[in-house]
Amino acid sequence: MAYEMIVLTNMLIAILFAQSLNLITGFCGQVSLGHAAFLGIGAYTSAMLTKAGWPLAATFIPAMVIAGMIGMIVGAASLRVRHDFLAITTMGVSFLFTGIIRKQDMLGGEMGIAGIPAAYGGRVGLLLMTLCLTILFIIIMIYVKRSWMGYVFESIAEDEDTAGVLGIDVRRFKLFAFVLGTAGAGLAGALYAHQVRFIGPDSFGFVESVTVLSMVIVGGIGSIWGVTIAAALLSVMPQFFQVIDDYKLLVYGMLLFFAMRFMPDGLGGLAKRFRQNRNPDSSSERSQA
């Protein structure tokens, strides 16, 4: 039972993490190749605090606040660059984060932080806590998507110049998406740190950033259910592939390639096309960013 619980908790954390990026990349159209850095910021913050004797639940707020604050700085910097430049800048953030962590003895340097205390209630407690927080985050996402803010994000994702002309304060909303998304990643990081109980710079590298971005894209940019399913599948996939563990990255890389090649608008887009084929009248076409 313990094994299934670990897999399930991992899956829920992945969903939370992917949704937090979905807010930035999916809703608001801002590509981030450095999202794992914010998972890392949350994980380190939370791990340091629980090692100092705080209960896990009390570290959620600091983890989110610090990740969100740094997210605001990165977001403010990202306002200056667009498209490919933005992708590369955020990639730089990812490398900068691991580079700084490696050299900080206070944060364990290369060795990372070991012996992170278990959550209250052990595995079951952590699983329940993760489940509640993930569901809560998804509800917030649905709310944001349906609110007027969701429409504002969508207009920015589609054409930010036109959105600006219409009187939308593009910078403010982009920044807000960054803060909310990175705070979500910080929360996921706090949970992650107490799930694996050992973190190091390599847990939050560029590959992790690509992994989470691929969850969002395979799920279908901006689609809440698509991204949830994609994150669930892609996070448990390595467990099913234990037999071919040696070829894990090969399978993973090819999967990314074939997903992009044959369903570039992701699971969400696939579902939409299916619905439209069955019911051609309700073709509420929403273009993907």
């Binding site: 990255l249 890389g253 992009m260 090649r261 570039p264």
Partner: peptide
Amino acid sequence: PLLSQPPLIALIASIGIFIASEE
């Protein structure tokens, strides 16, 4: 085959090929 897609799609596909190639 991906030229008509947004550049992000090709970027992700390219990263996928790169990860697979190391393996």
